[in-house]
Design a protein around this nucleic acid. Structure first.
Length: 911
RNA sequence: GCCCAUGUGGCGGAAUUGGUAGACGCAGCAGACUCAAAAUCUGCCGUUCGCAAGAGCGUGAAGGUUCGAUUCCUUUCGUGGGCACCA
């Protein structure tokens, strides 16, 4: 009986589906465990071998946990709103809903082929109205909440209104509040809502009539068409994530993410401590407020730099400088934020003609504007200290601004020195203090004089939450006289209306603005922008817990039961965006009492990227002739990507190549080396356009899903990035066939027996149990696969065909290769899924050894091995070692200085 | 520029706490079985010297700590990724 993997895999996938083997209940006496993958965006290109890496890891772990007696939630869904579908619609006229549906069908079929244990009954799609109804609902919760600074948590905005009505606040009394117009009141509340509307800068492209993402802007022009792009203020929705900055920071202490992942989030949040200091401006009533982390350097300030967008600019610019400044402002407007921050080499700036006054020594400080200072960070103004900050130093040198030295010999005049350990000079009342200590002294003085205060600052900005696009969640908001009106929860979902064309609406609005019937309602004009991609993904892990509930987003009972995601697997590309947003949403829902935990993901495992190994051929310039890689240097050539699937290693299959792309290269000729065409190679991102993608379906057809799963794991540690190479897959396939042959012979059929296992066989088994359990627990799936190979090799060497042993092995292997294990499990006469078997228990007694083959080194160099009983103590060991012939040879008659003996490890003789 | 990760045979990788470097697999070589092939099995497989026994070298490089370093420390180079005039 042969190992017919295709039949077996189909059979068990059907069985699992029909018997609902992976359906999970919210009621169970077992402890729960929640394993989640970052759900995919269903792109038109389908799945390539890079996608399933994390899915296989999570699937193995889910099955393992189930075998270990847990009620495991392991769902899958689709992040199905997004730009590519809309872009595709723009090009082909096909509705995003149609193409998305089609793509999801393909994805699901591909996923099912690999044999994942998803509970598809809980599948969700962010673009499904039954799902985004609750995305909109949560948005309304955010809209109707504010961040209470006293309690450091979200509270209903109604609480704030009540306070204003009865007590007022430091800016107005209750009477004043009650006298405000509705619009005035709403404007004040908008400044506190967690989801709020305000003006924000966007990349505006006049020619395309639309807003562009940062990466759609290249060198100041649009990527599509090369049209000019400028910064423009537009009304946008935002999430007040900055209010949660500190809690997001503190929450990192309570979760199990890698240190580098936490570090990335900390850097993004960018907490800094310093001071805000106000400077008077000469001949002006305006004052300039700067934020600095180094108040100790206040006597070293030689100039100020403010953001070109700073509101004070026009007020302080002198008439002589007006023209210059306007020219510079026009230049800055043409620069995307990314460009403004990216080019460190070219220094630009412009003097306003105005001077600030140093409050301590009265010195005149010129005020400049420069693109590297952003309006959105701090106060949008900095005090520049060239002797201590390299960027300020470069700026001063470039514009010939004299530099004051406040750190004596620590400053060379050739570069800035950002030390905090220097003793201050030329620094008035701070003279003689070490900079570190001077900070507090300076801040205290500033506060005493009432010209500034201690300030904690965050680099993170509030998150832009609207997009001028079609394929996203509509906002449940209408506008009337400049006042936003939320829809009532009973009116949800506000369904995304059908459109016939996907081009932008007037005045930079999204496509929805074209639907006059839809936007005009009795309660005002509908919001025409839609929510960004991360809206639906910020809370999806909750919906899986209670996916069909039409009363609430997730019943509190369900979220109390499943609680946090125990293991979350996904790529590092979501390190800051998605993870921070979902952490924030979780905290808000927790604050409002809607769920019982405030961190969504207990443990995060980052899978590495599988890169593609591209193949190149070299066209001789201007011909249809291609030269083999080894000879290409003799010609002028252009490299051309060829499909990796037509290449065996680096050896091009010329016949296949000639038929490629509708026989585009049918007439090509070749310059070969040793009768072969050798391709060039390069490791790149796996992508369709580079022809280096490998389709998992084909590998599953050719070798089976079990082989494919194990090979992906065998490639290396899950967390590591590595290039894909199909070559080694044969080895894993051979392993599974070898396992099969322990029970079945191709000719004789069944060869397994009920005979009792020998000690040697049990030893092999229990060594494997121990190692597999350890490796699976620490997500070391690659070494687990090796362990299985070793085990089967050893059992084959022992000619062990015993049910007693192999049955246990099948349970261990089931998470990794579920189909073959299920088949063999039943062949051995068991009923029910192998996943419901009892996980083998490791028996240490079987592995106890009485002797050890010790490596013996002389002076740290390994010279021989000696087998010694394990119960020997140092003196006996020394005696036996010194008797050894090889050791005596290396001692060469000299007495040993010392003998190091580590029990059960090694022996080292020092001469 | 800053931060993080990483560097081990022809290749993917292993060595979990400082204790036999190269497990396991791929590729390669030699052989068995076969009319032949596939499949399977056996042996070899870091490098240099040597018939061999054995010896020298060897985890990017150079130092250091240690009886002992792929593992810890310092310096340095390469690669990958992330962030970026963030005050």
């Amino acid at each position: 009986m042969e190992y017919k993997f295709n039949e077996i895999e189909k059979k068990w996938q059907d069985y699992w589906r029909e018997n609902k083997v992976y359906q999970v209940s919210n009621n169970s006496g077992k402890p729960k465990y929640y394993v989640l993958d970052m759900f995919p965006y269903p792109s038109g290109a389908g799945l390539h071998v890079g996608h399933p890496l994390g899915y296989i890891a999570s699937d193995i772990y889910s099955r393992y946990k189930r075998l270990k007696g847990f009620n495991v939630l392991h769902p899958m869904g689709f992040d199905s709103f997004g730009l590519p579908a809309e872009q595709y619609a723009l090009e082909t006229g096909q509705h995003p809903a149609t193409t998305t549906e089609k793509n999801i069908t393909t994805f699901k079929a591909q996923l099912d082929k690999i044999g994942f244990c998803y509970d598809w009954n809980r599948e969700l799609r962010t673009s499904d109205p039954q799902y985004y109804k609750w995305t909109q609902w949560i948005f309304l919760q955010l809209y109707n909440s504010y961040f209470c600074n006293t309690q450091q948590k979200a509270r209903p905005i109604a609480d704030l209104v009540k306070k204003y009505e009865t007590k007022g606040c430091k800016n107005f009394t209750a009477d004043q509040w009650n006298a405000f117009t509705k619009k005035e009141q709403e404007d004040i509340l908008m400044n506190r809502r967690l989801a709020f509307s305000a003006f924000g800068e966007v990349n505006w492209c006049e020619a395309l009539g639309t807003v562009l993402a940062n990466d759609e802007v290249v060198n100041g022009v649009s990527e599509r068409g090369g049209h000019p792009v400028e910064r423009r203020k537009m009304r946008q929705w935002f999430l007040r994530i900055t209010a949660y900055a500190n809690r997001l920071l503190q929450g990192l202490e309570t979760v199990d993410f890698s240190d580098s992942m936490k570090e990335m989030q900390r850097n993004w949040i960018g907490k800094s401590e310093g001071a805000e200091i106000e400077f008077n401006i000469k001949n002006s009533t305006s004052r300039l407020n700067v934020y600095t982390t180094r108040p100790d350097t206040i006597f070293g300030v030689d100039f100020m730099v403010i953001a070109p967008e700073h509101e004070i600019v026009t007020a302080i610019t002198t008439s002589e400088q007006k023209e210059e400044i306007e020219k510079y402002l026009a230049y800055v407007k043409s620069r995307s934020e990314r460009e403004r921050l990216a080019e460190a080499k070219t220094i630009t700036g412009c003097f306003t003609g105005a001077y600030a006054v140093n409050p301590f020594d009265g010195r005149k400080i010129p005020i400049w504007i420069a693109e590297y200072v952003l309006a959105g960070y701090g106060t949008g103004a900095i005090m520049a200290v060239p002797c201590g900050d390299q960027r300020d130093f470069a700026f001063a040198k470039h514009f010939n601004i004299p530099i004051t030295n406040i750190i004596g010999t620590h400053f060379t005049g050739h570069e800035a020195n950002p030390t905090k350990d220097a003793v201050l000079q030329n620094s008035g009342f701070l003279n003689g203090l070490v900079m570190k200590d001077a900070m507090a002294v300076a801040i205290n003085k500033v506060e005493e004089l009432g010209i500034g205060k201690r300030k904690v600052n965050y680099r993170m900005r509030d998150a832009g939450f609207s997009r001028q696009r079609y394929w996203g969640e509509p906002f449940p908001i209408t506008w009337c006289d400049g006042i936003a009106n939320p829809l009532d929860a009973s009116e949800l979902p506000l369904e995304l209306p059908h459109v016939d064309k996907y081009s932008p609406g007037p005045n930079g609005e999204g496509p929805l603005a074209n639907l006059t019937d839809w936007i005009n309602t009795a309660n005002g004009r509908r919001e025409t922008s839609t929510m960004p991609g991360y809206a639906g993904s910020s809370w999806y892990f909750l919906r899986y817990m209670d996916p069909h509930n039409d009363k609430t987003f997730c019943d509190r009972k369900a979220s109390d039961y499943w609680n946090q995601v125990d293991l979350y697997i996904g790529g590092t590309e979501h390190a800051v965006g998605h993870l921070l947003y979902s952490r924030m949403w979780t905290k808000v829902l927790f604050d409002l009492g809607l769920i019982g935990f405030d961190e969504p993901f207990k443990k995060l495992l980052n899978q590495g990227m599988i890169q593609g190994s591209s193949r190149f051929i070299y066209r001789v310039a201007g011909t249809n002739q291609f030269v083999s890689a080894g000879l290409k240097d003799n010609y002028t050539t252009q490299p051309l990507h060829v499909d990796v699937n037509m290449v065996d290693g680096v050896d091009l299959n010329i016949e296949k190549f000639k038929q490629w792309k509708n026989a585009e290269f049918a007439d090509a000729t070749f310059i070969l080396e040793n009768d072969k065409y050798i391709c060039g190679t390069e490791i790149e991102k796996m992508s369709k356009s580079k022809f280096n993608t490998v389709n998992p379906d084909e590998l599953c057809d050719k070798y089976g899903a079990d082989t494919f799963r194990m090979y992906e794991m065998f490639l290396g540690p899950v967390e590591a990035s590595k290039p894909w190479d199909t070559k080694g897959i044969e080895g894993v396939h051979r392993f599974l066939r070898k396992l099969w042959r322990l029970l079945f012979d191709d000719l004789k059929g069944k060869i397994w027996t009920d005979a009792k296992a020998t000690d040697a066989e049990l030893k092999v088994l229990h060594r494997t149990i121990k190692k597999i359990e350890e490796d699976t627990e620490r997500f070391s799936f690659n070494t687990a696969v090796s362990t299985f190979m070793i085990c089967v090799n050893e059992l084959a060497d022992l000619k062990c065909n015993k049910k007693e042993v192999i049955e246990q092995l099948l349970i261990l292997l089931a998470p990794y290769a579920p189909h073959i294990c299920e088949e063999l499990w039943h062949q051995l006469g068991n009923k029910g899924s192998v996943l419901d078997a009892d996980y083998p228990t490791f028996n240490p007694a079987l592995l106890v050894e009485s002797t050890k083959d010790y490596p013996v080194s002389v002076n740290g160099k390994l010279r021989t091995n000696i087998i010694l009983p394990l119960n020997l103590e140092q003196p006996q060991v020394e005696e036996l070692v010194l008797q050894n012939e090889v050791v005596q040879k290396w001692l060469d008659g000299k007495p040993p200085k010392k003998i190091i003996f580590v029990k059960n490890k090694m022996i080292n003789v020092v001469v």
